[in-house]
Design a protein around this nucleic acid. Structure first.
Lengths: 77, 77
DNA sequence: ATAAAATGTAGTATACATACTACATAGCAT
DNA sequence: ATGCTATGTAGTATGTATACTACATTTTAT
C-alpha cells in the first residue's frame, strides 16, 4: 500500500526551485523529466519515484529528507 | 525516463536490515509492504517508490541517502 | 493593452512498482 | 534425516507515476 493515496508524500519542491530561480521547465530538464511532471509533484497530485526524488534533490542540492516528508512540511525549515 | 532501467537505484537495505537483526518479513511488516517486495528491492530488481523508501528508512533509522543512491554503494560507511 | 512566459487542467497511453499465490531451494536446528 | 524458517523464482493482476499533447488561465513585462 505504498501507492496508497492515504499516505501521501509532502514536499517543498516549489519553494526550493524558486529559491534557485528555476522555472519548472528548467528543473524538469535538469532532472530529465517532463515539465508537467514537476507540476504534478508541486501540487502533490502524486508522489515521485525514488529515482526522481533523488534526481530532484541533487539538482536542488538538498537532502531528500529536506525536500520530501511523510508528514506535512513546516513552513520555515 | 525515471522509470528507465538504465538508471537504477542502488541500496544497502539488506545490510541495514541484518544489522538490526530483522527478517524480510519483519521489515516488510514494519514498512507495511509485502515481504516479497523487500526481496525485490534487496536484489535491486527494481527501485522503490519514494513513499516506500521513506518508510524503510524510518524503520531502519537511516537517512534516505544512507540507504539509497544513484551511484553504486561503497562497502564501508 | 498586448504579448509572452509560466503554470494549470484535461485526457490518453505506457511502464513499472507492488500485491499476492505457489512452489523451490537453502540454512539451521534438533 | 527431518523439519522449520528464510529466501529465491515464477507468474498474474492492478494502480499509479510519467510522458505527452492541447488548450486555458495567470503572471509578468513592455
Amino acid at each position: 500500500m505504498s501507492r496508497n493515496p492515504e499516505d501521501p508524500v509532502y514536499n517543498r519542491i516549489e519553494a526550493a526551485r524558486l529559491a534557485k530561480g528555476l522555472t519548472r521547465q528548467e528543473l524538469a530538464d535538469k532532472a530529465g523529466v517532463h515539465y508537467q511532471t514537476i507540476g504534478y509533484l508541486e501540487r502533490e497530485e502524486y508522489s515521485p519515484s525514488l529515482v526522481l526524488a533523488l534526481r530532484i534533490s541533487k539538482v536542488l542540492v538538498q537532502e531528500v529528507s529536506d525536500l520530501f516528508s511523510l508528514s506535512p512540511i513546516r513552513k520555515e525549515k
